[in-house]
C-alpha cells in the first residue's frame, strides 16, 4: 500500500453520520488509535435516531494519511456509516469570529411550521452573528406541541444588542413565534453553582 505523510501542522477532522446504535464511537476511536491519531476535540449528538459526530485529531509520529483514509473507509462500509475526512490547516483551527463578541442565548418558541429556522438565521447571518450551538426540539405545551429552538450566539460588541433583539422579536411576531434574547452570563449566574 502507498504511504502518504500528513501535511505539516495539519489536523484532521473526521465526521461520522448514520443510524444510531451502540459501538459507533468505539469503532471510530479504535481506528484512530491504531493510526496514531490523538483526539483533540469531539462533539457527538443524536437527533431523532440519527447519529452525528465530529472529531478533530492530531496525527502523531508514525501516522499515515493514506492508511487512515483506507481504514476509515473500510469501517464506513462495514458499519453502513458515512464518514468524511478533511485536513484542517492552522487557519482552520481559529474560531470565528476573530473580533470581540458577547455571548447571548436566543430562544424561539411557538407552533411548528416550515421556515422558522430560515427566518431567524437570515437575520443572524445578515448581522454577522455566529451561531456556536443550536438545538431544536418539539416539546408538549398544554394541548399542543411547541417547537423550541435554542441558539447560542456570539454577537460582535459593536452591534446594538437591543436593536438585534427588536429585529428578532418583530420577525418572530410576523411568523407566529415568541423570540427572546438574553445574555449568556445571566443563564450561567442563575443556573450554575
Amino acid at each position: 500500500m502507498a504511504t502518504a505523510k500528513h501535511g505539516q501542522n495539519q489536523w484532521v477532522s473526521v465526521s461520522v453520520m448514520g443510524h444510531d446504535r451502540p459501538g459507533i464511537v468505539a469503532g471510530v476511536a479504535k481506528v484512530l488509535f491504531e493510526n496514531a491519531c490523538n483526539i483533540e476535540a469531539l462533539s457527538q449528538t443524536v437527533v431523532m435516531g440519527q447519529f452525528a459526530m465530529i472529531v478533530v485529531v492530531a496525527p502523531r509520529k508514525g501516522s499515515d494519511a493514506a492508511r487512515l483514509h483506507a481504514d476509515l473507509e473500510a469501517l464506513a462500509k462495514a458499519t453502513d456509516l458515512e464518514i468524511h475526512i478533511r485536513e484542517v490547516g492552522p487557519e482552520g483551527k481559529v474560531p470565528f469570529p476573530t473580533q470581540e463578541t458577547e455571548p447571548f442565548v436566543i430562544t424561539v418558541r411557538g407552533a411548528d411550521r416550515p421556515g422558522l429556522v430560515a427566518a431567524i438565521t437570515a437575520i443572524l447571518a445578515e448581522q454577522g452573528i455566529n451561531i456556536t450551538r443550536l438545538s431544536a426540539e418539539v416539546v408538549p405545551a398544554g394541548q399542543q406541541m411547541d417547537y423550541i429552538q435554542i441558539y447560542e450566539v456570539d454577537i460582535p460588541k459593536g452591534l446594538d444588542f437591543a436593536l438585534i433583539q427588536k429585529a428578532l422579536q418583530e420577525r418572530g411576531a410576523e411568523i407566529g413565534v415568541v423570540v427572546d434574547m438574553q445574555h449568556w452570563n445571566i443563564f450561567r449566574a442563575i443556573n450554575q453553582v
Binding site: 423550541i148 435554542i150 443563564f187 442563575i190
Partner: peptide, 16 residues
C-alpha cells in the same frame, strides 16, 4: 452546558 429546561425556566423567570 445549559439544558433546554434551564434555559426556558430562566427566560420565564425574567419575563413573567
Amino acid at each position: 452546558m445549559l439544558s433546554s429546561e434551564e434555559i426556558i425556566r430562566t427566560i420565564e423567570m425574567l419575563k413573567n
